[in-house]
């Protein structure tokens, strides 16, 4: 059994079911992200784990102990909110000490732990400030310190970086990840930002309409999306219509290409959706590639994004900008080159 074990979890608000039969096992020390568009039920699942929302059905166990019906205070779960939720009447030090005071730790222990936490979040001199005197990034660090000061078994973060500036967001996500590794605390991180999920997580749960669309490592989820939803939500992607020829080949706009896998069990003549990452395609000079015409070029700095028209379909590709080679002009005839493994045949749903 996993450290966090969620089975058959369901949540309905009146007639509307927002979480359907959700199963997930999380190992001790793992960093798992829930990634999905707004309204897909990420927060609701997190709140059921924290105990703020009652499950309509199903079971949640942490470290072998069922917590499904326990109040939040008894679950040993720390929570970080998007809005920081620091206590405005307390200083930074008092905020961090709150959970320890509730747990009736000795004054010496509290003092020591608060100092330790302030050092961890790199704000050692701000113990006597009030929350309103801090920047958003600092407030969120304090909220993090407050949550982990009591050494909970599980740390839950609900879009903790969404309210922050882009720069701080990136630096703070690295800090959170490093801190989580050091402490070895089992963590669930909710986000709608795929870059955040991909860069931080051990595993990602891609969510769609209250269900887990795919669970896997960032590499797996990005490289082998299970279905159209995951493919289009995680990263940018070409979605092309192909017609099956046999188990190893299909045609794109009438041209035959080789496919590594995924066509087993498909009928010849059936139309399937194939996904192709822009960075997997290169412009080749050889006569072997798929012929097309450059339609548009956008220069993005390190990367040049080129749109190439086959016949009825358009393929977008990303090439690194190279000093020795100018980007192609629109109207140029080109050949598209990609590996048989890069063509992903997508399942339905």
């Amino acid at each position: 059994m996993s450290f966090i074990d969620i089975t058959g979890l369901k949540k309905a608000f009146g007639p509307v079911t927002v979480v359907h039969d959700f199963d997930l096992g999380i190992e001790k020390g793992e960093f798992v992200s829930f990634l999905g568009p707004s309204g897909c039920g990420k927060t609701t699942i997190l709140r059921m784990i924290a105990g703020f929302e009652a499950a309509s059905a199903g079971r949640i166990a942490i470290d072998g102990r069922e917590v499904t019906r326990l109040p939040p205070a008894k679950r040993d779960v720390g929570m970080v909110f998007q809005s920081y939720a620091l206590f405005p009447n307390m200083t930074v030090g008092e905020n961090i000490a709150f959970g320890l005071r509730i747990a009736k730790k000795s004054a010496a222990e509290i003092r020591e732990r608060v100092a330790e936490m302030l050092a961890i979040i790199k704000l050692p001199d701000l113990a006597d400030r009030y929350p309103w005197q801090l920047s958003g990034g600092q407030q969120q660090r304090v909220a993090l310190a407050r949550a982990i000061a009591v050494r909970p078994q599980v740390l839950l973060l609900d879009e903790p970086l969404s309210a922050l500036d882009a720069k701080i967001r990136v630096s703070l996500r690295e800090e959170i990840r490093a801190l989580q590794r050091d402490l070895g605390i089992t963590t669930i991180f909710v986000t709608h930002d795929q870059e955040e999920a991909l860069s931080m997580s051990d595993r990602i749960v891609v969510m769609n309409e209250g269900r887990a669309a795919q669970v896997g490592t960032p590499f797996e989820v990005y490289t082998w999306p299970k279905n159209r939803f995951v493919a289009s939500f995680v990263g940018t992607l070409n979605l092309l219509d192909g017609v099956v020829v046999d188990e190893g080949r299909l045609t794109l706009d009438g041209r035959e290409v080789t496919v590594g896998r995924g066509l087993a069990g498909r009928r010849a003549g059936e139309t399937v959706t194939v996904a192709l990452r822009p960075e997997a395609v290169t412009l080749g000079a050889t006569a072997t590639g798929l012929p097309g015409t450059v339609e548009a070029v956008s220069f993005l700095g390190a990367v040049v994004r080129v749109k190439v028209r086959l016949d009825t379909q358009v393929v977008t590709l990303d090439a690194f900008n190279q000093t020795t080679q100018r980007p192609p002009e629109p109207g140029t005839a080109v050949r598209l080159v990609f590996g048989a493994e890069d063509l992903l045949v997508l399942g339905e749903g």
């Binding site: 924290a50 105990g51 709150f98």
Partner: peptide
């Protein structure tokens, strides 16, 4: 949210 923050820190 303040109530939830307090409760998740063990407060009654």
């Amino acid at each position: 949210t303040l109530t939830e923050a307090a409760e998740s820190l063990g407060a009654s």
